[in-house]
Design a protein around this nucleic acid. Structure first.
Lengths: 246, 246
DNA sequence: CAGTGGTCTAGACCACGTC
DNA sequence: ACGTGGTCTAGACCACTGG
């Protein structure tokens, strides 16, 4: 098995603050700190690494910007709960007749090595891919059907992981099990109608209006790590996008 | 007439780098530098302001993050073309049968002081509002119908500006004419169907599937400055959202 | 070659939380 | 009182751009 991404030696051509950022991300992925536990202070890290406090600050700030850490003045720098996927996967957030915003439940209906469609190959090259089919919903009602492709080189063994070890959110699993941090996302939202197979997966009539979200996820180094397509009934659909700081 | 936002005295309780950021943003709004013109270098600004170079860097970096400036190593820091609106208003980017991505043309069909709908009042309070109706399209074909509400306190006189002074993009006008910088956006994408009036505005059959984008725009100080709803045929619709750095 | 931004240092003082 | 992060300074060296 290949080493997880962040366990690999960091690229020593990078500036020191990025090397430290990657080392810390690796330790976070390895579970060095529990959620809401304080990391070593800036001064301690500076002493340990031989870097100046300012450089350490910059490395930690980068992880704050990526949503992994939280700084509390007078108190310390803490590992954030990986609400990561929930904050990114924020469509279907959920506009049910009654409901408030809850994280949809998740069921993996298929995982296997399979030939990947063209958009995946355009991104990743001609590599082996794992295809994941997932249904998400709330209280029994299926709302979203997802097709997810990941390269088997980075995610070796994902297709045979016990389902119990995979929660409702995938990105925390990517990080804790494979050391892969998703830092950046590009989503494309469009509109379509349900073909026979999709209508069946979603429990909709054939030809029903469909919202489609195509997503590419990238690691901090800019390499793509996942391609997914999510479909749901256009009727309930709601996609929220924040642009700019905050 | 009220002073434009950035012409007001900067809040001197803020840290020095934020005060400088706001002062520079004010000068940009006032047209001190042309597009692609270099701002004073870090050293010069540091000397002029009496601040250290590091603090000046931080102020400039904040404006780079907001998309106003661009830094070129070895060369200088330059005012970016306000592709601002184009980069934010990136749906309908445009997926026409033939076309490539172009900035849609724009026609203001109505501007008047008018009672604002509830979502606006929830954001802005019970203030007077200017209602702008706009049609956007490419080569004669209408693609998008927008309803835009802005508070008349910040945008006094907008409803009677000569249309010739308003280009295809509104945010540059907000900045250059009213000193209002849009720093942050929240978009909500959903799907609906066209009622009679909307069908007519867009030249679609009644009941046609509709993509709806509701947008709230915020100034750097966190105050809302605009609320808009944009509708277009779901068929051509494509909304791209980038999450995370880059 | 002179000037620019990019990185990095080794300090300083302050505001804030915790004990 | 002490340690934390937030701000700020006054330098340093480097990589790069431009004339």
């Amino acid at each position: 098995m290949e080493y997880p991404h962040y366990a690999r030696a960091v690229d020593d051509r990078l500036p020191a603050y990025l090397q430290l950022r990657d080392r810390l991300a690796g330790q976070i992925a390895a579970g060095t700190w529990r959620v809401d536990e304080a990391l070593p202070s800036e001064n301690v890290l500076a002493q340990q690494t031989g870097l100046s406090v300012g450089t350490v600050r910059r490395a930690m700030q980068a992880l704050v910007d990526e949503g992994l850490l939280e700084r509390r003045r007078g108190s310390g720098t803490f590992l954030k709960k990986p609400a990561f996927d929930a904050s990114l996967f924020r469509f279907f957030s959920v506009q049910l007749p009654d409901g408030q915003g809850t994280i949809p439940s998740s069921r993996l209906t298929s995982r296997q090595i399979a030939p990947a469609p063209e958009p995946f190959r355009a991104l990743f090259g001609d590599v082996e891919a794992i295809h994941i089919e997932r249904l998400r919903g709330v209280s029994g009602q299926v709302l979203l059907a997802e097709d997810i492709w990941i390269p088997s080189s980075r995610f070796a063994g994902f297709e045979s992981m016990p389902e119990a070890e995979i929660g409702p959110l995938l990105y925390p699993v990517y990080m804790s099990r494979f050391g892969v941090l998703v830092a950046r996302i590009v989503d494309d939202v469009s509109f379509s109608t349900a073909d026979g197979k999709m209508a069946e997966r979603l429990g909709l009539p054939q030809g029903a209006p469909l919202a489609v979200v195509e997503r590419i996820a990238y690691a901090p180094d800019g390499m793509p790590v996942e391609w997914r397509v999510a479909c749901g009934s256009a009727t309930w659909f709601r996609y929220r996008s924040r642009i700019g700081p905050g």
